[in-house]
Structure formats: structure tokens, C-alpha cells
Design a protein around this nucleic acid. Sequence first.
DNA 1: GATGAAACGTTCAGAGC
DNA 2: GCTCTGAACGTTTCATC
Lengths: 152, 152
Amino acid sequence: MPRTLKSFALDSVDREIIEVLLHDARISMKDLANKVKLSAPSVSERVERLQERGVIRRFTIEVDPASLGYDLQALVRIKPLPGKLQVVQKLIEDTPEFSECSKVTGNDCFIARLHVFTISQLDQILDRISRSAELNTSIVKAQTIRNRLPPF
Amino acid sequence: MPRTLKSFALDSVDREIIEVLLHDARISMKDLANKVKLSAPSVSERVERLQERGVIRRFTIEVDPASLGYDLQALVRIKPLPGKLQVVQKLIEDTPEFSECSKVTGNDCFIARLHVFTISQLDQILDRISRSAELNTSIVKAQTIRNRLPPF
DNA sequence: GATGAAACGTTCAGAGC
DNA sequence: GCTCTGAACGTTTCATC
């Protein structure tokens, strides 16, 4: 049986709060309170508890890499050569152009997202890593879903 | 030549503002102003301009899927069967458990991130898609980098 | 880009359900 | 336990320089 929502004690108001904050994290507690039909202090307290419980990890901004000139985005599957796992992991972490990296099961070991200005910059970064790993690179043509929250 | 920062007219103060907001998007304009050694109205205006220019896409919260019970995360490479591209894309979009989906070059067509409660739920979702596409699924064991912003 | 005043939002104590 | 009210306190905004 899938775990139910009850076991996390998130009621419908908490869910509404999260939905609203996902779209506008700087909304005033007063306006948020109006939306969920509660008083400002109550909502403020709920938001604090959601943070304490780790449901809300942080308040942040979504920055558009393209607006900073990062016109090229790639997803790279990375399979370290025997004995090179630690080296490769550190290499990825030390390359700031990687914005995401997941350690996964299967034939690959890491799947990482890379943002660069140009193809030659991509080439440079991948050449460096390919000394320690087998790579499989896919250029991102479009992002059809971004940062969507599953139902809860 | 890689595009320089000048062409985007982001000065060092704008960069500082973005760095701070990435970590705390609810900081008051007054405190943010102190950090970057400017007055509150000036900073407020800069933040507005960054939004208008699309550098800041939105103010949002980072929600921890695990805290909602989503204990299982997978990255799925999806290669639609001939003529099934549209069907598959719609299927992914209509499955709310997919939190991200990138359309990519290469042998696969989509690479998508999936959040589920249980293995059997994963099985169900993938079975449905596998009628229209070849799948290659990797379970995420750890996320070593998350939502990092490349240098700018 | 800064200042200062007015408008607005948040927080806290106290009380009620 | 969770919520509300009202007043004190802090923040944002706007006109002005």
C-alpha cells in the first residue's frame, strides 16, 4: 500500500500553502492567509513548521541559465573507469558548469546536467572527464517539464 | 569566443543579489541592501529589473519529495516507438509523478525524472509508457549536486 | 542611487474554541 | 492543539533630491 498523506500530517491547507509558495515565494503572509482563509499568524506558523519538518527545504529563486548566456545544456551519462569512481565524482563536483548530478543504479553511475556557453566549452569539459570515464552525452533541445511537484 | 558577462549587463552587485536570493529568497530588501552595500529602494529596483529581464524566473520554494513520502526517485530514458512521439510526450506530461522532462538529441528522445512512493507504483507507471516506448530506467541512489548555478 | 515619511506587513501576547 | 485579534514593531514604497 502506498504511504498515505495522513502519515505526514500534511492537511489540505498545508498543501494549498505549498502550491502558492511554489509559484510566488515572496507573497506576504497576509495575502497568503487570505488565499487559504486563515489569519496571517496562523499561516506564518504553518510555514515555519513546514520548514522545520523539512518539507520546505528553502526559499529560493529560479534563475534562467539562458538569460546568463548559457545557450547550451546537456545531460551526460557518466560511467567511471574501474577504480576511478571517487576521482570522477570529485571532478564533477569541482566543475561548476554541472548544475545537477544524480548517482544512479544501472550501467551508468552518474547522470549530470551541464550548462555551457559554446560547443567548444562543452568539448573541453567532456575531454577532461573522458580521461577517467566513459561518457554518453545528450544535448537538451527543450525542457518540457521543469521542477513540477508530484501529487501529495 | 564565449559570450562575456558584459553583454548581459549583470554587474557584480546583481550577481551578489542573485547569490543571496538563491539561498534565502525571503530576505527583506533592507537586509539584502545591507549585504550588498546599497539602499533598500535601489536593491528592490534591481530585483524587479532582474525579473523583467527574465534572469530571475520566479521566487519559489524547494520542496523535499522524500518528506512527502516519495522515497523512490528514478531517471528514465525514453525512446518512443516509430510514430509515437506525440503520444509519449503527452503521456509523460499527464503523469504528475514526472517532475522534470528534457527532450534530447541522441538515441533516446526524452530523459525524465520520476518520483514514486513504492516500486510497484514505479512498475505501474513504466508499464503504461512501455506500450509506446522503449525505456531505460535508473534508480537514483543519491543526488550529489542539486540546482547549482554555473559561474556568471 | 539615497533619504525620509507614509503605507503596508509581520510578530507577539493574550484569549478563545 | 490550532486559531484569532489587536497593538507594537519592522519593511516596503514613493516622492524628492
